[in-house]
Design a protein around this nucleic acid. Structure first.
Lengths: 126, 126
DNA sequence: ACTATATATTAATATATGTACATATGTACA
DNA sequence: TGTACATATGTACATATATTAATATATAGT
């Protein structure tokens, strides 16, 4: 929960020693995204922050796959996979297409793949 | 919780109709990162998946700031800020330096800034 | 229409996570 | 060394989130 950064007038008095870095606070405050954007971004990352979903996402970054394939690959129960796919689809991280009985899932756009790779770069480097 | 994708032999039998897309599963399975990497990556993204921390991170992407500054900017209680900074620091997302009584925090490396921007790009575009 | 299979949904429970409060630690300065 | 301030930590509580099992829906083929 983030307070609205556009109303920081009295917040500047929060510090006991009041005037510390007032200029920085004002400047940063002007450049902060609005709270709604922060929320939406947090919701995006939240979905990346679970190894189950991340496994699904990584798999889909390699190839379009059906639910059944994902179950086999990740050794998960089908309802669990469907459940996570639903979350991911609602946030437009993955998309699906149906071919008869089978529903194929894939990443919604290339940002997702780039986020995965960039994140992995960071965790692997140190 | 992700099962070890290197042991998918019998998992291939999970589907009732057994042989669906066996080749895809084998190929993707070979390209999956090991489970530990998936976990670490999930832990990274988990920390991005909260609007409180994301506010802190965005602020720090604009400028190095002390705890007190962050409290004022985000209108949060000091222990709450410190608590999140501790999490972020443990995962090497932020780093700190002390100057007398004051501890300054900043982003640990440029991957973090790029992840923030890339994520924001994705949420803003649709 | 009936059956089998692939996927989706629902509800219950367990677990993880953030928050708030009290308190502790560390640093500077008198 | 004693006081004030900046930051850190620990615990309890509330809430969010994942997981599971049971069940429902949708589609294809007979």
């Amino acid at each position: 929960m983030v307070a609205d950064p556009r109303q920081t007038n009295d917040a500047l008095e929060t510090c006991i020693t009041k005037g510390i870095h007032r200029e920085i606070i004002r400047t940063v405050s002007r450049n902060m995204p609005d709270p709604v954007s922060i929320y939406e971004l947090a919701d995006l990352f939240k979905l990346f922050g679970d190894s189950t979903r991340l496994g699904i996402l990584w798999a889909l970054s390699e190839s379009e796959m059906c639910v059944c394939d994902l179950c086999a690959l990740l050794r998960m129960k089908q309802p669990a996979v469907s459940h996570q796919l639903k979350n991911l689809k609602q946030s437009r991280i993955v998309k699906s297409r149906r071919d008869g009985k089978i529903v194929y899932y894939s990443l919604d756009d290339d940002h997702i793949r780039r986020l995965l790779n960039l994140g992995m770069e960071h965790t692997q480097e140190s």
